[in-house]
Amino acid sequence: MSDITLTDGVYVRPEFVHKSLGAAGHGEVERRLTWFERISNVEPLRKFSVLILVIVIWQLYTTIWDVHELMFPTFSDTFVALIDSVVNGGLLENVWNSISVLLKGYAIGICIAAVLVVLGVTTRFGDDLLTTLTAMLNPLPAIALLPMAMIWFGLGEDAIIFTLLHSIIWPVALNTHVGFKSVSETLRAVGQNYNLRGVMFIAKILVPAAFPAILTGLRIGWAFAWRTLIAAELVFGGQVQDTSGQLGAEGSNSGGLGWIIFQNQMENQTPYVFAGLFTVIIVGIVIENFVFRNLEDRTVRRWGMQQA
């Protein structure tokens, strides 16, 4: 008490410096978490448990309440149906049919988008044309063009590819174009400084600099194309049934995934419908998490360019 003086309204106390800090009496500086805490910090493990839990609840619900298989099959029935369609039902063949159509459309679509974007960055008229076209056609669901495509190309792969093209070109072109335009003046100047012109400039400066936007475009394009494809195959199923009165006019058993879902629903094979949906999910997850995630890890993430 007596050490403290009040000087000009401030309580002044004596200074002190500790000579050495004893290590003892501090308690634990660092301790490992318990086994359970550490396990539950592993994210994939937690998510997997959630998945198992959902499946268990599904199985219990459908068996205990005795839900009719036609309305909501049990997980085990769905699983059996999945195995059966892989082994006997030519499911993989249908998956491959869908994917090969999709890949064809995707490849052609990207090429067309690339041409449009190159036109768009080299001339002002090209720029205006591209912005107007993307603004007009991007909001138009590709599937809406299917009836016209069927008139122009008939019932078949060509009509589906035409529809797919439309779902890929606009998001890819739009995102790439916007990405190119927002490449900083500095990077452009650097490219010109080192003698890059025309196509070389686009390939070596604009494309990598706008890669986050391009990747977004490719992803959206894929998502739209995948949805359009399934929808188109469903419409085809209905159309074929509508006009010819019988399924499989597309060529026995290989109309694609959407078509198989439609067909099984028509035959009231609900477990097989579920199995088809499962396959759609799996294909989606594989493409999203393997193809695109990998591409992202190797490019924009490594370069520290990923968007927030």
Binding site: T186, V190, N193, N195, T299, W303
Partner: peptide, 17 residues
Amino acid sequence: GPDRVMVFQEFDQLLPW
């Protein structure tokens, strides 16, 4: 041209990729 190389103020002059 590369006979007059420019160093800019902005940090993003390096190619991030």
